Simulated scan of single mutants.
Amino acid sequence: MAERQRADARRNYARILAVAEEEVAAHGAAASLEQIARTAGVGSATVRRHFPTRRALLEAVSHNRIEALCVRAQEALGKSDGRSALLEWLDDVVAYCVDARGLAAALLYDDDPLHENSCAAMIEEAGEPLLRRAVRDGAVAADVTVADLIRLIVGIVLATERHPDPGAAADRLFRLAVMGLGQVR
């Protein structure tokens, strides 16, 4: 009996996650947990058992994209210029956050000591070598952190998500932040 329940639980998890990916893509971080449960054919308690918080659900939905961004960080390390490598990767983070509704919210930091933000932790770890190199090259101030940069990106993406062209708006604001007021085209 216990083995059957584990198999049922695994199937429920997979079904909930698949439905959640569709709902988050359609409605962003505010996707209805009750709608996810209904569409997956499970009770809301089952959704909450697998994903006790909205953040846990968003992190699970975003996991593959986060892994892809970590790979991109490794690839960017091959660039000869530290600033270019960091900015190329940060451009990818912006683009991924715009394209994958809910990803920016999954990267939000909060002060909840009981729940580490695994998405943010993965991104920080992946971006750290790029940032250290850019700092070493003198392209970035020594007191800047990856967490600072991700907060900036999250703010930009959340501020532009309702824009008619959120990708262009987010890209423009990111360029503005990176280059400064006098150099925006």
Rank of each mutant, 00 (worst) to 15 (best):
A2G: 13
R4H: 11
R4F: 12
D8A: 14
A9L: 13
A9W: 07
R10I: 08
R11E: 13
R11V: 09
Y13S: 01
L17N: 11
A20D: 04
E21S: 15
V24T: 05
A26V: 06
H27A: 15
G28N: 08
A29H: 10
A30P: 04
S32Y: 08
E34W: 06
I36H: 08
R38H: 11
R38S: 11
G41A: 08
V42G: 12
T46S: 15
V47H: 05
R48S: 11
R48E: 05
P52W: 00
T53N: 07
T53S: 15
E59V: 09
A60H: 01
N64H: 11
N64Q: 14
I66F: 03
A68Q: 12
L69W: 02
A73L: 06
Q74E: 15
A76V: 05
L77N: 01
L77Y: 01
L77D: 04
G78D: 13
S80C: 00
D81Y: 00
S84G: 04
A85T: 05
L86W: 02
L87C: 08
E88R: 13
L90Q: 10
L90A: 11
L90M: 15
D92N: 14
D92L: 02
V93D: 07
V93R: 05
A95H: 10
Y96H: 14
D99M: 07
A100Y: 14
A105T: 03
A106T: 01
L107K: 04
L107W: 02
L108K: 14
L108C: 12
D112G: 11
L114E: 14
L114A: 15
E116S: 14
E116L: 13
E116A: 15
N117C: 14
M122Y: 06
M122R: 13
E124Y: 00
E124T: 11
E125V: 07
E125Q: 13
G127Q: 00
L131E: 03
R133F: 02
V135H: 06
R136D: 08
D137P: 02
A139I: 04
A139G: 11
D143P: 02
T145E: 11
V146D: 01
L149I: 07
R151W: 07
G155H: 09
E161K: 13
G167R: 13
A168H: 03
A168L: 04
A169H: 02
D171L: 08
D171F: 04
D171M: 07
D171C: 04
R172A: 14
F174V: 00
F174W: 15
F174M: 06
L176V: 00
M179R: 14
Q183C: 00
V184K: 01
V184E: 13
R185Y: 07
